[in-house]
Computed example of a mutant assay.
Amino acid sequence: MSYFMYDVMGGAIDEPDPEAMRQVLDGLANADDEHPDVSLSHESGWCLSAFRSGLLIWENTEDGSVAPVEMREVTREEILRLFQLLAAGDIASIAALPWRR
């Protein structure tokens, strides 16, 4: 399975391991209005975007008919867990969570 991350400055990291994911999440401390999030995208088109506030957005960037959904106040450890699920291609487990439109 192929996946990649964008850090807070938009730099791409191919198939990061959990430690690299953790480092990218640490970069949220430097987020600003122009660079507010980090994300992990899977080859299926599914993407998780995380913001410093704990906002997490789940969307399919390749299917415009699927509306993005969100969760708020998500902990850093939960974000890391979900990034790892997405990297493994476990779309169903992420989709089953209590997302809000």
Rank of each mutant, 00 (worst) to 15 (best):
15 E>S: 15
15 E>G: 12
16 P>Q: 07
16 P>A: 05
16 P>W: 06
17 D>H: 13
17 D>G: 15
22 R>S: 13
23 Q>T: 13
23 Q>E: 15
23 Q>F: 06
23 Q>L: 14
24 V>D: 07
24 V>R: 13
26 D>C: 00
26 D>E: 07
27 G>L: 09
29 A>K: 14
30 N>F: 10
30 N>C: 04
30 N>I: 01
30 N>T: 09
31 A>N: 10
31 A>K: 08
32 D>K: 07
32 D>H: 12
33 D>W: 08
34 E>K: 08
34 E>S: 12
34 E>C: 07
35 H>P: 02
35 H>L: 07
35 H>S: 15
35 H>W: 13
37 D>P: 02
37 D>H: 11
38 V>H: 03
38 V>N: 02
41 S>P: 00
41 S>W: 08
41 S>Y: 10
42 H>P: 01
43 E>P: 06
43 E>G: 12
43 E>L: 10
44 S>Q: 05
45 G>R: 04
45 G>L: 06
46 W>D: 10
48 L>V: 09
48 L>S: 07
49 S>F: 09
50 A>Q: 01
50 A>Y: 01
51 F>C: 11
52 R>W: 03
54 G>E: 05
56 L>I: 06
57 I>H: 01
58 W>P: 02
58 W>V: 01
59 E>F: 05
59 E>H: 07
60 N>M: 01
60 N>Q: 02
60 N>L: 04
61 T>H: 04
61 T>Q: 13
61 T>D: 09
62 E>K: 08
63 D>H: 02
63 D>E: 09
64 G>H: 04
64 G>W: 02
64 G>P: 03
64 G>Y: 02
64 G>C: 05
65 S>W: 04
66 V>T: 07
68 P>M: 00
69 V>W: 04
69 V>H: 04
69 V>G: 03
70 E>W: 10
70 E>M: 11
71 M>F: 03
72 R>M: 12
74 V>L: 02
74 V>K: 01
75 T>Q: 12
76 R>Y: 13
76 R>M: 11
77 E>I: 09
78 E>T: 15
78 E>C: 07
78 E>D: 15
78 E>N: 14
80 L>H: 13
80 L>D: 03
80 L>C: 00
